[in-house]
Amino acid sequence: MGISEENHPVVINFEEYEAIRLSDFEFHGHVEAAQIMGVSRPTYTRIYESARRKVAEAFVQGRTIVFEGGKVYFDSEWYSCNSCGCWFNHTEKGQKIDQCTLCGSTDIEQYFDNSQNPVNEDRCVCPNCGSETVHLPGTPCKNEICPACKCQMIRRGAPFNQGSGNNNCN
């Protein structure tokens, strides 16, 4: 094949490419990026970690990068019909669709998945009374004081009774 053992290419999967694109090109956080890719946050972090290691390997060892494979599925284009309220797709990419597959109405629009509302947004929670505030990136939750009972707050989802200082409430 003409490729020596030292110079066989580094294979980056499509999901690894996507992880680098989401994190390092579009600057999404891992929680957000995981939602976009439809995987759990830990899985996303694993994919991203693997991607970064492969890139580093290629840089340091001067190897070629090849993009291929992985568990990917390119969804077809989806449309919604304003007349009968259905959703429909069509399988020929790039072909223009002008009427609803179900009812034939021309009152249709292409559907883009722009559900950007972060369901799992970071929040600070009071371990004492349970009241929550929106977490400010860059400010540790323990620097926040609960407006109701003056306790130090912790990150939502973090185990209670971790760390010190939570005895100073009231």
């Binding site: 309220g85 259905c86 429909f88 020929e92 597959t101």
Partner: peptide, 9 residues
């Protein structure tokens, strides 16, 4: 190449 229609009703 089979088309899908989702009807949430």
């Amino acid at each position: 190449k089979i088309k899908l229609v989702i009807l949430k009703d």
